[in-house]
Every structure is written in C-alpha cells, then in structure tokens.
Design a protein around this nucleic acid. Structure first.
Lengths: 205, 205
DNA sequence: CAATTTAAACCGACTAGTCGGTCTGTATGG
DNA sequence: CCATACAGACCGACTAGTCGGTTTAAATTG
C-alpha cells in the first residue's frame, strides 16, 4: 500500500473526526494531530478549514454525478435507467458513506462561493432523475398521473436517508437494501405495461 | 396576540438563526440580541446553549410521537394506520419545519445526556411504524416478502427528507405531497387484497 | 558524480479575536 | 423584604489563521 500524502491523511482524519464530532466539534489543531502533520502543513494544502469541507463535498458529488451520467447513458428503457441510478447511488455508500454524512450534516457551514458550486451539481443530479421519470412516462411504463417533482423527491429521500442508518458491516448488505427499495419504488410508479417489462427482468422480488 | 415571554422569544430567534447559519454559526450574543434580551436573561432560562438545542428537539419529537400514537390507536386497518402516520408526520411540517431542520442538521452537537433521551423517542417512533407494517402483513394487506426494517426506513426517509426541499409557501401544498407519497408507497407495499381495500377508500390517486 | 541552487513541503510558536458561561448588580411585583 | 427576572461587564479557554524559519528533494551546473 502506497504511503498516503499529507493531504490525503488530512482528508481521512477529517472524515473520521467530522463524522464523530461534527465540523465545529473538531479544531484544526486536533485535525493535524490525527493526520500526523502540523498547522503549517495544513494551511499549505488548504486555504481554510472551510476549503477542506468543500473538498470533501466535491470528491463525493462529482463522483456520483459522473458515474450516474455514464451509467444511465447506457440504457434506453426508463426502468433500466431508474434501476441503474438507484444502484449506482447506493453503491457509492460503500465507498463514500463518511463523505455523505459530512455532506448532509454540515452543509450550512459551506462558504457561499463553495455552496454555489455544489448546488449546481446537486441540481444537475436532480434533473437527471427527473428526466428518467419523464422518459418513463413517454415510454408508458411509468404512470402518467405521477408528479415528476414529488416522485423524484421521494426517491432521493429514500436513497439519501440511508446514510443515517446504514452500517457498512451490519446484517443488511447494500445489495439487499437496493433490491427492496427498487422493488417497492418500481411497483409504486409503474403502469401495467411497465410491470410486464419489469417482470421479464430481475428487478422485482 | 399575546406578548411572548423571554423564553419563547429565545426559542423563536434560535429557530430562525440556527436554520440560517447553523448552531455553531450563531453565538449566544447574537441570539439574545435577536430575542431582545441579554446573556443574563438567557442563562436564567437555559442551563447552557446545548440545553436550548435539546429543548427545540424535544418540543418537536414529543409532539410527533404523541400525535402519531393517538392517531394510530383510532384505526384497526394497517392501511388506515399507515395513511394516518404519514399524514400526521407530514402535517407537522407546517408547524415545526424549523425544528425539524435544526433537529437533523445539528444532532451531532447534542450533549450525550440529551442524546440518550432523544434517541429513546426516535426508537419509539420507529417501532410504531414497524408495528403497523407487521399488522399489515398479518392482515394480508401488505406483502409478506417485504423486509419490515428496510420498508420502514424507506418510508421514514421519504417523509423526513421533505424538510430539505419543502417550502411552506411554495407551489406544492403539504396535502398534495402527502397524497402522492401515500399513493406511491401504498402501491409499493400492498397485496392484491390490500389494493381492493384501498380502492374503496380515498388513498390512491 | 558532487556541489550548488531553487522551490515546494512542512513546522510550531504566536496572535488577535471569539465564544460560552459567570457574576454582581438592579428592578419589580407580591 | 425577599424571590424571581433580567441586565451587561467581565473572564478564561479556545480557535482559525499567520509567519518566519527549516527540511527535503529535485533540478542544474561544473
């Protein structure tokens, strides 16, 4: 295993400590001690403590957005796309759960200039999901009477909330959880025609 | 309108300011200024800043728990109970959205003794929901193959996440949102028999 | 290859300011 | 006269960020 750089060690330390005590519960002093570096080292790599917070956000949100874009582009069926979006996001938990926790708990403390950058990517992600739902309506596999906005928020709420309770080494694997989520949500949004399509694939329990 | 007491003014100020800037973004100094009182006044009513945070939590979680308990006790059908639980929680947003926002954003900063108290009530609420799902399975209106735990988290995630995007005076009313959520979730979890029951009532779109 | 230069990486004592909390004093109503 | 409700000056602890200096390592030169 390659030796970690100072910057990487700081991010690692921040993820652990911020999760445990929150952004404001951890001083730069404590942070650099855990990362086995110094104040000077820290401020050599980061403009400010807030800069570090932004960096943590960006690593995770950029990853999700790119992965999801690429994955969805490989499918035409909205059912496949929705499955892929959910699966992609849920998989991210196994890599980035700490990032996500910090992301959602501490977002008010982002500096305004950072907030704007992050919001752009968040919106892009939401639009992606809404487009999938619209595709599904046009393909007659998702019900016409659904509100795109509300349904999108239901899905985002369901998957995002997982960060609050999912334990990496708990009894429930991310794979199981995703199967159950997919099952309930697909049944909730699909038409009869959609049902027939989904039944030929492996999405329902 | 009755004149507010100092304590009430402090809580009001805290809700507005904590939402905007986060718990750590607001000093006691700023808080008492907004509440038109003083440090002395504040510490006469609260043991500490953390005590205020706890008070905000408790107002909201106690309310939800009691309302939900009472409301669910009035029904036998699990479908009615689930509808009532969702409706009750969603209604709370119109009164307590600020409490909820602070609740979820700042929970890491709760003092350990307060955290334990809050967690008890959170768990009680989750058990209530899980019991409803179990009832539904026994009444053969919810599908047997559902995981109680995962389904409960899907529902809690969906309703809780609403605090992130719901705007009191936006285009979507809480009533509409609840109807859509109920529709998708019920269709997701019900059996054929459940469908027949729900169709005779007003739950589906 | 060794000597020299240069720039980036890193250190930690220090500062200026902030924050939660205390304490003493005052006012008011019963 | 006394308890409760408040006011605001004050304190000690702590924090983000700075700055002058040192180490490290790579590039350049003779």
């Amino acid at each position: 295993m390659r030796k970690l750089t100072v910057k990487e060690r700081v991010v690692e330390a921040a993820l652990d400590l911020f999760q445990e005590k929150g952004y404001h519960g951890v001083s730069v002093e404590e942070l650099v001690e855990r990362a086995a570096t110094s104040k000077g080292g820290f401020y050599h790599h980061f403009k400010s403590k807030g800069d570090l917070l932004y960096e943590i956000y960006d690593i995770f949100i950029s990853y999700v957005l790119n992965e999801t874009k690429n994955a969805c582009a490989e499918h035409h069926s909205a059912i496949d796309q929705l499955d892929t979006l959910m699966r992609t996001f849920m998989n991210v938990f196994n890599i980035y759960q700490r990032h996500i926790t910090v992301f959602y708990n501490e977002s008010v403390y982002l500096l305004p200039e950072h907030e704007a950058l992050i919001n752009k990517k968040r919106t892009a992600y939401r639009k992606l999901l809404e487009q999938i739902l619209t595709n599904g309506q046009q393909q007659h596999v998702f019900r016409q009477e659904l509100s795109i906005t509300i349904t999108a928020m239901l899905i985002i709420g369901t998957v995002n909330w997982t960060y609050k309770w999912y334990k990496q080494h708990g009894a429930l694997t991310m794979h199981d959880i995703t199967r159950y989520f997919n099952d309930v949500i697909l049944r909730g949004v699909m038409t009869e025609e959609g049902y027939r399509e989904a039944s030929t694939k492996q999405y329902l329990l």
